[in-house]
């Protein structure tokens, strides 16, 4: 589904990603872990199509297409969803209005029938029930005055409604208490199936106790330096990221 080859990315002439290679097959969950500043968020932003990132070399294939040919909206229509690390506030815009607009934009782009207000309300109510969040969520302004945890839950609610093909969670777990973490993980687990893939970007192993990844990758200095299964996450938890720096020094 997703194939990243030798991806080099710079931001304002500063090289951030130094040759990422990653293949994600349908149904797989990949965790990308790494210390701060290793390029984790850059990778998620590049996948979602945010401007300001220069791809110097490398390519990304998504569902047999060149990802760079697609605008951010088109990527969204084709099933890429990014749960933001810092969801932005949009005052005066009702949450349910945005949710419906997003769902219908995707449906329209895929020549599917748009849902009407009534249908959508039923759909949304079902999802918030599954996530165990309050109905008032739907009628508040998008993220405005939301607590950190509420913002993250709102991201997961959007993901549940948009049913992505590739869900990218950018440090969705950071700053969450254990209850919120369970809600986030529950959302991902409910969506997990053989066709849907996830990339979980995280600093901590904690999230992976609730969402068992198929693969764990360690990102450092813009490169994947080690890949493995869930046990790698446990190892990282024990040893921390200190050994990476040592390894880097050795390789230099």
């Amino acid at each position: 589904m997703l194939e990243i080859n030798d991806l080099h990315v710079s931001v304002e002439d500063k090289q951030i990603l130094n040759g990422i290679n990653l293949t994600v097959n349908p149904g797989e969950v990949h965790a990308i872990m790494g210390p701060n500043g290793s390029g984790k968020s850059t990778l998620s932003n590049v996948l979602a199509g945010r401007s300001g990132y220069d791809t110097t070399t490398g390519r990304i294939q998504y569902q047999q297409q060149d990802l760079f040919e697609l605008s951010p909206e088109e990527r969204a229509h084709q099933g890429i969803f990014l749960a933001f690390q810092y969801p932005v506030e949009i005052p005066g815009v009702n949450n349910i209005y945005l949710l419906k607009a997003a769902v219908n934009a995707k449906r329209k782009a895929n020549d599917e029938q748009e849902v009407d207000a009534y249908e959508f309300l039923e759909l949304a109510k079902d999802k918030i029930k599954k996530l165990g969040i309050d109905k008032s969520f739907l009628y508040r302004d998008v993220n405005a005055g939301f607590s950190g945890g509420e913002k993250k839950r709102n991201e997961i609610l959007q993901m549940m409604l948009l049913e992505p093909t590739l869900g990218i969670l950018d440090e969705t777990d950071s700053g969450l208490d254990i209850d919120a973490l369970k809600i986030v993980a529950g959302g991902v687990n409910q969506l997990r199936n053989k066709d849907r893939s996830f990339i979980l970007i995280t600093h901590y192993q904690r999230l992976l106790d609730y969402i068992k990844p198929d693969f764990v990758h360690v990102l450092a200095n813009g490169k994947i330096i080690k890949s493995g299964d869930y046990s790698l996450a446990l190892e990282l938890e024990k040893t921390g990221y200190g050994w990476i720096e040592k390894m880097e020094k050795v390789s230099q």
Binding site: E73, A76, F84, I90, G92, A101, A105
Partner: peptide
């Protein structure tokens, strides 16, 4: 970018933010 990532076209995204601003 947030709205675009949710599949909303640029012009619609601008319209949404502006209408939110004018809601009162």
């Amino acid at each position: 970018f947030y709205l675009q990532q949710r599949g909303i076209e640029t012009d619609d995204a601008v319209s949404m933010v502006v209408n939110g601003f004018c809601k009162q």
